[in-house]
Amino acid sequence: MAGLQKAKSEETHRRVLEAAISAVEAGGLDAVNIRKIAAEAGYSVGSVYKHYADQDELLLAVNSVTLGRIRERMSEALEGSVDPMFQMKVLAQTYLDFARENRNLWTTLFAHRLPEGKAVPEEHILENIALLEFIAVPLKALNPELEGDVLAARTRTCFAAVHGLVTIGLEARFVGLSGEEMDREMMFLVERVSGM
């Protein structure tokens, strides 16, 4: 009996999360509405709240899935490569491609803010750190003198530079780039911030 209840609970959890992911994919952050997601998943609003304390917790779960998908794509992109500059470039291009192909998920990852006083869960912080590790490894290979806090700071700087270029480009700001021009300039940026 307990096993059946656990399986049903896991199924509810999964279906609610899938409905929330679909809502974000279709309409972005503003599309996340507990009542609509409950209806889409085929459950009551109360059932959703049994699994997710509030909308913020549900969005954190969606963002965790997004981070996982980015990490998976980066891992696949790096398979078989050993040259650290190539790795830095392929990571940046993979990030750009993911943002282009999954615009609403990617935007929600950075647009969602927790209310003041509500701490980001430790596991979510660790997921972000795991993403940065992809950059830290080839960056260290290119700059062996970087250690500890300096390496961590330079890793965040590299990510911020790439993320900024992607953000401005996808938001079509007046200084933004697009298409092949964006791809070319991304490679230029990566070479410069990687210390080469």
Rank of each mutant, 00 (worst) to 15 (best):
P144G: 12
V137W: 14
L139Q: 08
L59K: 00
R35G: 06
A41C: 09
P138G: 11
Q55K: 15
V150Q: 10
V82D: 13
E127L: 03
V82G: 09
L105P: 01
L131A: 08
P144V: 08
K6N: 05
L132R: 09
V137F: 12
R100L: 14
A20K: 03
S44M: 13
N104D: 13
I135A: 02
G46D: 08
I37N: 02
E76P: 02
P84R: 06
S75C: 06
A77W: 11
Q5S: 09
K50G: 10
V120Q: 00
F86N: 09
G80R: 04
H124S: 05
D30K: 10
L78T: 10
L58A: 00
I129N: 13
N102G: 05
L109I: 05
R35T: 14
G42M: 08
M88E: 01
A119G: 07
F86P: 01
L126P: 12
P121Y: 12
I125H: 13
S64D: 04
E147Y: 05
L114N: 00
E25Q: 11
L58E: 01
R69H: 15
Y49W: 09
T108A: 04
L58D: 00
G148I: 15
G148N: 11
E101T: 10
N33L: 10
E40D: 15
R103T: 06
G27Q: 14
P138A: 10
H124P: 01
K50Q: 14
R14T: 15
I37P: 00
I70M: 15
D83R: 15
A26N: 11
E122L: 04
L59Y: 01
R69A: 07
G148H: 06
D54W: 11
